[in-house]
Design a protein around this nucleic acid. Structure first.
Length: 706
RNA sequence: GGGCGGUUGGCGCAAUGGUUAGCGCGUUCGCUUGACGUGCGAAAGGUUAUAGGUUCGAAUCCUAUACCGCCCACCA
């Protein structure tokens, strides 16, 4: 046996070991060696990876999530389950299109300069580059994904799944086309769903505007008016009513009367509606059904005209004097004009929330637009039911509230987007594409071959679809519980009649040490690849998972990765110690603790021997329990304490003075081997490397399938 | 506006109502004993955010308050 170096060097080990794993084929459940457990049909275990967007490289959040999933998969694989962890990437329609547009901007070009065809070529080049970069990163981290099943949400088979799903809804009448007031991103030039907008606090103003009442006498008209408050005076051009609360005594007499809308001189009614808050502003609100969500609802209740005055470029239309002005320019002009007419009562400072695009941060305009929608009432009910019945369980449980709250009040989903990169709407004459989340909603079964394999599913044929659907665990970030998780659940219910996974594990969000969100644009991001280069993949995995406690956010500190590296070095040197004594071979499956023989047969077993064996057994049990309920941090601490303290500090020190060398060597080797097995899901590279050097009689090709 | 999470040694975090509140990093002191100085042994460092309450007993349960963070929301 060659002498091992004193310090563990991950660089010399990781690529070699990953290659060994890939060559073994054991990432693929169909190629796993037979064991007692794997012969049983029920012992399948599946995780579908949340496909990373191909917008760039992975950050620590991804690294944490990938580590968590790999721990679960390796743990179950070692237990004898037929494990599938299915890899892939997401075309991320709007996000990727924006990323490529940003790149073009550096060349002073827009997508329109290139034209659709050339632009899409460019996106495909981007996809090839970043798609493979992401998969490489996962490999560096040690992820045991079945690469033979790699999918992309825009590959040919996937397009078939999207088309099938869309047409299924279409035939049911759940997908429909209609003109609605939708969120419109002025930069991306597309509609967005309600979940795709964010709110940004803005120090704005509240203008109080006098709307003159229509009276018979002109003299009176100058004196009598109703005052409305607004943050967006320019939208008054599209007002088609003024609304007050029906219980508001101040305005009771005015309901049913008309006002003359300043600047346009249109006559519009004063109406009573429940949506109006008596306490805010003046209690009277201008109603612009074309450019405000609430106003649209009010308009529908009162049959008001929808008068669009802002177009999809953010400019004023349909009003002569302001035609072609940008909304903000129009605002200035209108306020000036109103002031010169003496119609501005007062102006107050007012902080409010402005909707912005979740991908590019541009202000959202609400405009009436012809779009495709998916009816949500029935689907939402199914999704709620699945969680209520416990078919889907959230960990930690509190996150199901976020899910229920959204589904209970959800409105129809606007699924069409005016983008170039994405799935085409499968209806003749439609050029628009689908919301990227429509396709990701099908991920857990589309990746397994749906709809092609659906027929054989009915025939109970053995294929991926019925073997690995539903998946056991979905591990993801809390930010996409509704955007993605909820939509996967109702899609699964609709197309597969079962929810797509049993457990939803919401992992911690990785923050900076200061408690700020990690973000590339803020320069607060930490690249896992740099950590892997510096400390090794195992150290990075162990260090980050060490911090996973009870669903709390993680403030990332590099100290923990340093700890991980030290721990790996400890594992390395304890193994060196055991190997240096040149122990005789032992049998892998020898049941030392059981009634079958093993240590029960050993005559001279010392107190220290008994203690370490007991501690090992206990640790195995506790770690299993922790992993059953996703307690990764506590599990890693138990492993650490057992190995470092019980095994190294106490037992190994003790063995140096134990007389029965042969017995001691056997026990040392047994405890080391078993420790490697329970450590392997957390630190796969180093444990595999050591395993390959251990004197085991019936050694498996890999510890991975130990 | 509503909801959720957090606040424990210098820093990052544990502790499932019950001994002296633990761990990692850092700090100080001592160890060149043949696995590891990325190590071993020891030590210092905490009125558990604040104020009340429940209890034989509270970091833990309850009620407020403060600060930090996140999510949702149609007060124009």
């Amino acid at each position: 046996m060659p002498e091992l170096p004193k310090v563990y060097d991950p660089k010399k080990v990781e690529d070699k070991i990953y290659h060994l794993w890939q060559k073994s084929g054991f990432f693929n459940p169909d190629k796993l060696p037979k064991t007692k457990n794997r012969k049983q049909k029920i012992k399948n275990y599946c995780i579908v990876i949340p496909p990373p967007n191909i917008t760039g490289s992975l950050h620590m959040g991804h690294a944490l999530n990938a580590t968590i999933q790999d721990i679960l998969i390796r743990w179950r694989r070692l237990q004898g389950y037929k494990t599938l962890w299915l890899p892939g990437t997401d075309h991320a329609s709007i996000a990727t299109q924006n990323a490529v547009e940003k790149e073009l901007k550096k060349e002073d070009k827009t997508r329109f300069d290139l034209g659709k065809e050339k632009f899409l070529e460019r996106v495909w080049q981007w996809k090839i580059k970043y798609g493979s970069l992401i998969l490489e990163q996962l490999k560096k981290l040690g992820c045991s994904l079945d690469w033979s099943r790699t999918r992309f949400t825009l590959d040919n088979g996937y397009a078939k799944a999207v088309e099938t799903a869309f047409l299924h809804y279409y035939k049911k009448g759940w997908v429909y086309k209609g003109k609605r007031v939708v969120n419109w991103c002025l930069r991306c030039q597309t509609s967005l769903s309600d979940l795709e907008i964010e709110y940004k606090g803005e120090g704005g103003k509240l203008w109080y505007i006098r709307y003159p009442l229509k009276t018979k006498s002109l003299r009176l008209q100058a004196k009598s008016y109703i005052v409305v408050a607004t943050t967006r005076p320019e939208t008054m051009l599209g007002d088609t009513a003024v609304a007050v609360n029906s219980n508001d005594k101040r305005y009771k007499k005015l309901v049913g009367k008309e006002i003359i809308l300043p600047l346009t001189n249109r006559q519009i009614p004063i109406i009573a509606d429940k949506a109006v808050d008596l306490k805010f502003g003046t209690g009277a609100v201008k109603v612009t059904p074309a450019h405000d969500r609430v106003d649209y609802q009010i308009g529908r209740r009162h049959n008001l005209k929808i008068l669009q005055v802002i177009d999809e470029t953010g400019k004023i239309i349909n009003v002569e004097n302001y035609q072609g002005l940008k909304a903000l320019e129009a605002r200035e002009r209108i306020v000036e004009d109103l002031a010169s007419l003496g119609l501005i009562e007062k102006i107050e400072d007012y902080d409010h929330q402005v909707p912005v695009c979740y991908r590019c941060g541009t202000v959202i305009e609400l405009i009436p637009s012809e779009q495709w929608f998916l009816r949500m009432d029935k689907l939402a009910k199914m999704a709620i039911k699945a969680a209520k019945l416990g078919q889907v369980r959230f960990f930690p449980k509190r996150w199901e509230k976020v899910y229920f709250d959204w589904l209970k009040n959800v409105e129809d989903w606007c699924i069409s987007r005016q983008l170039w990169w994405g799935h085409k709407i499968p209806i003749k004459g439609e050029n628009d594409v689908l919301d990227t989340w429509f396709s990701s909603a099908l991920w857990p079964f589309a990746t397994l071959g749906w709809p092609e394999k659906a027929k054989s599913l009915k025939l109970k044929a053995k294929n991926d679809l019925n073997r690995f659907y539903p998946a056991d665990v979905l591990s993801t970030d809390r930010g996409i519980i509704n955007l993605w998780v909820a939509r996967m659940i109702f899609s699964g219910m609709e197309f597969m009649k079962r929810p797509p996974f049993k457990d939803v594990y919401i992992h911690a969000t990785v923050l900076t040490k200061e408690g700020k969100r990690m973000s590339k644009s803020l320069g607060t991001g930490v690249d896992p690849i740099n950590l892997i280069k510096k400390y090794g993949a195992d150290a990075t995995r162990f260090g980050i998972v060490w911090q996973v406690m009870g669903g709390q956010d993680i403030r990332f500190v590099e100290d923990n990765i340093v700890m991980g590296r030290k721990f790996c070095n400890k594992i390395w040197n304890a193994s060196r110690f055991v190997l240096m004594s040149k122990p005789a071979q032992i049998h892998t499956d020898l049941d030392f603790l059981g009634s079958q023989g093993g240590f029960a047969q050993l005559r001279k077993i010392t107190v220290a021997d008994r203690r370490i064996l007991k501690a090992l057994e206990k640790t195995m049990e506790l770690v299993d329990n922790d992993l059953e309920s996703f307690r990764f941090g506590p599990a890693s601490r138990k492993l650490y304490n057992f190995f470092w303290h019980d095994f190294c500090d106490i037992y190994i020190e003790k063995t140096k003075s134990q007389e029965d060398k042969k017995n001691t060597q056997r026990i040392l080797l047994y405890v080391l081997l078993t420790s490697l097995k329970i450590l392997h899901p957390f630190v796969p590279f180093i444990t595999e490397e050591i395993y390959q050097k251990l004197p085991i009689k019936d050694k498996k090709k890999c510890l991975m399938v130990g």
